[in-house]
Design a protein around this nucleic acid. Structure first.
Lengths: 123, 123
DNA sequence: CGGTATCCTCATTGATACTG
DNA sequence: CAGTATCAATGAGGATACCG
């Protein structure tokens, strides 16, 4: 994979390029959740993962996993038993996102929870 | 602002809700950059901010700031001099995102830089 | 079980121009 | 300086169905 795909073309070499590049990974709707689930529950099959990430369609999950695999954050491993199984696991690079995902989750818990105090009708 | 807008409706009360909620703030293309610039360079006027965030159109900057203000991460302050000036600054809630933005920027620097070693034609 | 293939809708972005 | 208006383009996401 080339830099072109990792560093967006419109990013004009600023100080914050790496920030937006990270956002383009972690900012996708389902990517942080998928990473979070794989961090928590180890390697998972496709359908297991779909249940973990409740609400995602198989199409979007498939596309997300393709994207994550292309970015070398997730590794797809086919187990050649019968019936054939598939496992998705984080690569080392993917696991290295743990602090980022953790920071995001922590912030959400700390700062969105007290919003619920004002309007606890949901959640 | 109600919980409905902060916690996405499709988020089924899972463990990772707060994660996706954070992602919906920090995952927007320009939001982390705007926050980063405001963290680094204090209060800024509209046009100053547009220069800091090189490449953003005034329309998108305006919309992003509206969004950030609505989420109480950024405060808009009109200075009633002549000519009228505007200042955008982070709220306390906005500043509390510093660890998240920092984690994202650090990860990007640490893990995208060595990609450039393989293809240093850009950046 | 582990996906593709369609089709559709809506959100986001961008370019450009214009205003008080 | 600080935006708004308009319009076009893109693409992410969702619903559903189907396949080996």
């Amino acid at each position: 994979m080339s830099t072109q795909e990792r560093i967006p073309a419109w990013c004009p070499g600023q100080e914050w390029c790496s920030l937006t590049a990270t956002a383009s990974l972690v900012g996708k709707k389902w990517h942080p959740v998928i990473i979070h689930r794989l961090l928590a529950n180890g390697p998972l099959g496709f359908n297991d993962l779909q249940e973990e990430v409740d609400g995602i369609s198989s199409k979007v999950l498939s596309e997300s996993l393709d994207d994550l695999a292309e970015k070398q954050l997730v590794e797809r491993r086919v187990i050649e038993d019968k019936p054939v199984r598939t496992q998705y696991r984080l690569t080392d690079l993917g696991e290295s996102l743990e602090p980022v995902v953790h920071a995001m989750a922590s912030w959400g818990e700390a700062h969105l929870e007290h919003v619920d105090d004002r309007d606890a009708s949901l959640v």
